[in-house]
Amino acid sequence: MIEMIKASKVYSEDVEALKDISVSIASGEMFFIIGMSGAGKTTLLKLISSMEAPTSGLIEIAGQPVHLLKGYKLARLRQKIGVAYQDFKLLTDRTAAENIAISMEVSYKKPQIIRKRVKDLLAALDLTDKHNKITGELSRGEQQRVTLARAIANSPAMILVDEPTGNLDAETTEKVIKLLTKCNKSGATVVIATHDDLIYRHTPHRIMELQKGSILSVIRGNGL
């Protein structure tokens, strides 16, 4: 589903965030990207979601070169990709429910369907009482979960999550992972960038480690 061939990203002359990354992630796979801070995890996700264009190389999703898509086609592709950004990108003057609804509204889901989905997601993430709270007034951990809920609300074919548990305790982390696993089980490709070994330590899925913009290793988790 995701095919990266010798993709590089140079932000400025001395900042080479990614160097010749070649990796292919299958449809329906759950895939972890780990590495130290500054290794290039976020940049990699940005390339996949075409928030940034690669300096060189090719990135294809379902056979389409993403960085060449524009207008309507790009919009349609993005509707099928749910992204939980590391910096959240929440609308801080809107309620949690409104923030989650946005990703469904852009593909014109019916209002009653949106309402139900928002409620279910908030319940799954322990946020039921925050339904009508302005997200600017939520704690970092709560904001993080709202971001995740928005990413998966529209049941996208591909979910990219950047550091989903940075501000969460073990119990809530568990809930987040459970939710992502559920999405994966129902067919979504899930790519998780993290340096929280709690969430990939026992995974049976593939783990790619980045170091200073290059692939250090791709191993399959032992699944213990």
């Binding site: 928030m51 207008g71 919009a75 349609r76 592709l77 993005r78 509707q79 990108k89 946005i102 852009v106």
Partner: peptide, 16 residues
């Protein structure tokens, strides 16, 4: 601005 930017990221079409 923020909202419009986000809308584009989550796949809002030009028409939307």
């Amino acid at each position: 601005k923020d909202e419009l930017e986000l809308l584009k990221l989550v796949g809002a079409t030009n028409n939307y």
